[in-house]
């Protein structure tokens, strides 16, 4: 096996870890009470998926840097 760069491992851990963390949290809290963001009835919970887009961008910067 070629030595796998730490950044690639980190990218995998962040992106899959992020998704699996929220899937577990949602699975463990099926009756989650809904909180509000900016007046919207969308649960705070679900805003984290939007944040994954930002996380992706951060990871992209990380892997592209020297």
């Amino acid at each position: 096996m070629v030595k796998v760069p730490k950044k690639l491992i980190l990218a995998f851990v962040i992106l899959y870890g992020y998704a699996f963390f929220w899937w577990f949290m949602e699975a463990l809290n099926p009756n989650l009470s809904k909180t509000f963001i900016a007046g919207a009835p969308a649960p705070t919970w679900y805003c984290w998926i939007g944040a994954l887009y930002i996380v992706n961008l951060g990871v992209a910067f990380m892997v592209a840097s020297d």
Binding site: A11, A19, L52, Y53, N56, A60, V63
Partner: peptide, 16 residues
């Protein structure tokens, strides 16, 4: 939504 965000999460992985 997770399918869509999954696509975008594939981009930085592909970089390396």
């Amino acid at each position: 939504w997770w399918a869509l965000v999954g696509i975008i999460a594939g981009f930085p992985i592909a970089a390396l």
